[in-house]
């Protein structure tokens, strides 16, 4: 049985990689800096002194085989009453996963909503595949969203419809919609495509939304608290699917969570948000150095330490 499942997953991933060749992006625009300026980087550091060797770097992604930034967020700010997000500067390279970590109200969802064009930033720009998506004129660059898949914490699609009914209309919205792949995903997750989304459990709903998010072979995936409230086995399943997708297709992922173990499992880069500001950002490959620099044992302690210093 396990062997069959494994074969099935292999076939699924082989199909994925066959259908979606990793994109070789065009050259970066001149106005997008490859490195974040020092003045911006300063915003992202904690007040805690660190040795020069372990100075937290700003979204380094040093392990990237392709240093092209698929998602670029530049000087983005957004104010809601007393809450002010930013200025935020970060980038996600092709084939990398950036985990946004932060407590409730840190600004994770606001930042992701800006990346998904649901809200416009007060200042700053967001580039996806080199296109500025947050142009003030809504119709400009809307086609870039063909390359974006998302699962947000709230319902994205109509819960009074079945998964199959949602497929019926989304398949005409996305040009690269792949029905076969969609049904393979539905089968993999053992979903009932004729069941209303509202009647599904949270975990099943998340899987259903994942099927829709992936069926058009996006180059960028945005997940907001996608694993919150799920049991460990479902979480593990979803995380492994995301990880495999990234490895096989080169998709770039920006996902937020407050579950630290999720970050540790799949993120290439972690970005810690607190009170609307980036407190710390580093490659997971450098995590041990960061722990030593801050005198902590793990990511959870590091997060608590940074937040307590900032508060």
């Amino acid at each position: 049985m396990a062997e069959n499942v494994s074969k099935y997953e292999d076939a699924l991933l082989a199909r994925l990689s066959a259908n979606v060749p990793a994109k070789v992006p065009a050259e970066m625009p001149a106005e997008v800096p490859a490195e974040v300026p020092a003045k911006d980087a300063a915003n992202t550091f904690t007040n805690k002194p660190a040795s020069n060797d372990f100075m937290p770097t700003f979204v380094p992604n040093n392990n990237s085989t392709d240093n092209h930034a698929i998602i670029q967020i530049q000087d983005v700010t957004k104010r809601y009453g007393d809450f002010c997000l930013g200025p935020i500067n970060l980038s996600v390279n092709q084939g990398k996963i950036m985990g946004l970590l932060g407590e409730n109200g840190a600004g994770k969802t606001t930042l992701l909503s800006i990346v998904l064009r649901r809200i416009l930033p007060d200042t700053g720009k967001v580039f996806i595949c080199d296109d500025n998506i947050n142009d003030k004129v809504p119709d400009i660059n809307q086609d870039i969203m063909q390359d974006v898949g998302f699962v947000m914490d709230c319902a994205d699609f109509h819960g009074n419809l079945t998964l199959n009914e949602i497929r019926y209309y989304t398949s005409k919205i996305f040009l690269r919609w792949d029905d076969n792949y969609f049904y393979e995903m539905v089968s993999h997750f053992k979903l009932d495509k004729d069941k209303k989304i509202d009647d599904m459990s949270r975990g099943t709903k998340t899987k259903a939304m994942l099927c829709i998010a992936l069926a058009h072979h996006p180059k960028v995936l945005v997940f907001d608290e996608v694993t919150s409230g799920l049991d460990p086995s479902v979480r593990q399943d979803i995380l492994s699917i995301i990880r495999q997708l990234v490895e096989q297709t080169g998709v770039s992922v920006l996902f937020s969570t407050h579950i630290i173990s999720d970050i540790e499992k799949i993120a290439d880069t972690v970005c810690l948000l607190h009170a609307g500001k980036i407190c710390l950002s580093f490659a997971m490959g450098d995590a041990q150095k960061q722990y030593e620099a801050y005198g902590v044992k793990n990511l959870e302690d590091l997060m608590l330490d940074v937040i307590s210093n900032r508060s």
Partner: peptide, 12 residues
């Protein structure tokens, strides 16, 4: 179902 939010994340 907050469709007025979702539409902006779609290529529409």
């Amino acid at each position: 179902y907050w469709w007025e939010n979702t539409i902006w994340s779609l290529p529409l």
